[in-house]
Simulated scan of single mutants.
Amino acid sequence: MEKWRATREYLAWQLRCVDQRVRELEAQEEKERRAAARKRERVTFKIQPQRSHEGALLHRGDCGLYKSPFGYISAEDAAVALDEPDIEACQICLPDDALPPV
């Protein structure tokens, strides 16, 4: 009976170690996912839809003035969008500074 108790304690210890490692790996995976999302936001752009009294605004992907979880566009598409007469660049994040020349 003593051997079985010792085996049970050892297996319980192993399970705690495995559970801890799984938690660490999950946390690392989540950290990497968030870092990839931030990186994607820095190199993409988004267009805030036109309001009745204002034109549409082009923002950098990580601009805090317009938080939209979707609708990101590439730098090339953003450069084309800025050529449109009813789309202006955000005066806070200055997306036109990060755009390639057209």
Rank of each mutant, 00 (worst) to 15 (best):
Q14V: 11
I47F: 03
V80A: 08
Y10R: 12
A37V: 11
I87F: 04
Q91D: 11
K67N: 07
R21Q: 10
Y72I: 06
R8D: 07
A36I: 06
E84V: 07
Q14P: 03
I73M: 11
V102Q: 03
R38P: 02
K46I: 06
A35L: 12
S74V: 12
P101V: 15
Q50N: 08
E76Q: 15
R51D: 14
R38K: 09
R21D: 09
A27K: 13
R51N: 14
A35S: 08
A89L: 07
D77A: 15
W4Y: 11
R38D: 10
P85W: 04
P100I: 02
K46T: 04
D62S: 10
Y66L: 01
T44I: 06
A12I: 08
P95G: 02
G61R: 08
K3V: 09
V22G: 01
D19P: 00
V80T: 08
F70N: 05
Q20Y: 06
K67I: 08
K3R: 09
G61S: 13
P101M: 09
A37R: 09
V80G: 01
K31A: 14
A79N: 02
A89G: 12
W4D: 13
D77Q: 14
L11H: 09
I92C: 05
L99I: 00
D62E: 15
R5Q: 11
P100N: 03
P69K: 00
K31Y: 06
